[in-house]
Amino acid sequence: MPAERVIDLQDVHKRFGGTHAVRGVSLSLERGGICGFLGPNGAGKSTTIRMIMSIILPDEGRVSVLGTSALDAKDRIGYLPEERGLYRRMRVAEFLRFMARLKGLDRADADRRIGAWLERLELPGVSRRRCMELSKGMQQKVQLVASVVNEPELLILDEPFSGLDPVNARLLTHQIQGLRERGTTILFSTHQMRTAEDLCDRVVLIHRGEKVLDEPLTSILRRFDPRTVLAEPAQDHAVAERAIGRVPGVQSCGWNEAAKSLQVRLAEGMDPQAGLRGILAAAPMRRVELRRTTLDEVFVQLVGGDAAALGQEVGGD
C-alpha cells in the first residue's frame, strides 16, 4: 500500500506581475519526518508555502494537502509564517484561545493545551500578559504555540529560528524533534544550513522558483563528495598558499582567518586522497584535514552562480 501523501504539489507555477516566482515545482511529502525547505531569499520558498496553505492560489498546477485542499484541512495543519504577528493588545492566553477556537478546539481543551505548551516552551506566567509586553523571542514562542496548539498532522514552519537566541533555538529544536517523534510531519524553511543538517531527514532546495534538489539528507551527503581541505601550514601561510595554488587539481586556495588555516577547494573530479597528498608535498604542514561535506557546500555548489547572494544568506546564519 503506498504511503499517504501529506503534501502533493504537481507542476505548480505562480507569477506576480512580470515576476515568475515559482516555476513548475513538484513536491511529494509522505507522512512523518522533517523536510527542510531551503533556498536563498526570494527563491520562492514562502510563495510555495503560501500556496500549500491555500493562502494564495497557484496560476497553474495542482496542490493537495492531507488528501484535500488546505482550505478544507486547516484544522489539521499548523503554520508558523515567516512574518511573525500577534494582536499587540491582546493577552497571550486570549490570543492563543482565539487561534485554538479557529482550529476547532473547545475552550477547555484549548486552555489545557495552551497551559501545557507554555510550560514546555518555558513561558510560565505570561498568559495574562499582553502580547506587546513580551520580548521578541517570547512573542516568537507564543506564535509557535499558536501553530501547534491544535496538535497538527502537518506542521509548516517558515524560518522558525530567525531572531532566536542560541538557548531558545536549542529549545525549539528539541520541541521540533519531539513533534516528529509524536508523528507530526514537519516542513520547515530555513537558510540556516547547520540547523537543517541537524534536523532534517530530507532536503528540498529551491532556487529562482525552481526545485534544484530533493532527496534524503544522508543521500545528499553521500552523493556530494568532500571537496574542501583545511591545511594549517608550518611556515608562513602566504608562501604555503602560493605553493598549494600550483598543485594540480586545486581549484582555489585562500587564508581562513577564523580557522587559522588555508582553505583549499579541490576541482571537480579530483580524487580527494590525491589532493591531500599533493598539498602535503607542496609545503610543510602542521595539520591537513579533509572536511566533511556540509549542506552549506552543497548549497553553494548547486546555486554557485549566485555566490554573492548566497554568501549573504549563508553568512547570516
Binding site: 503560501r50 496553505m53 491555500s54 493562502i55 482550505l71 486547516k74 495543519i77 503554520y79 509564517p81 512574518e83 511573525r84 504577528g85 500577534l86 494582536y87 499587540r88 487561534m99 479557529l102 482550529k103 506564535q143 499558536a146 501553530s147
Partner: peptide, 18 residues
C-alpha cells in the same frame, strides 16, 4: 490596517480563508 501592519494577517489566514 492594524492586522496588516502587525503582520497578524498571515497568521489568521493560516487558520481561515480570506
Amino acid at each position: 490596517i492594524e492586522e496588516k501592519s502587525s503582520r497578524v494577517m498571515e497568521v489568521l489566514l493560516s487558520a481561515t480563508s480570506p
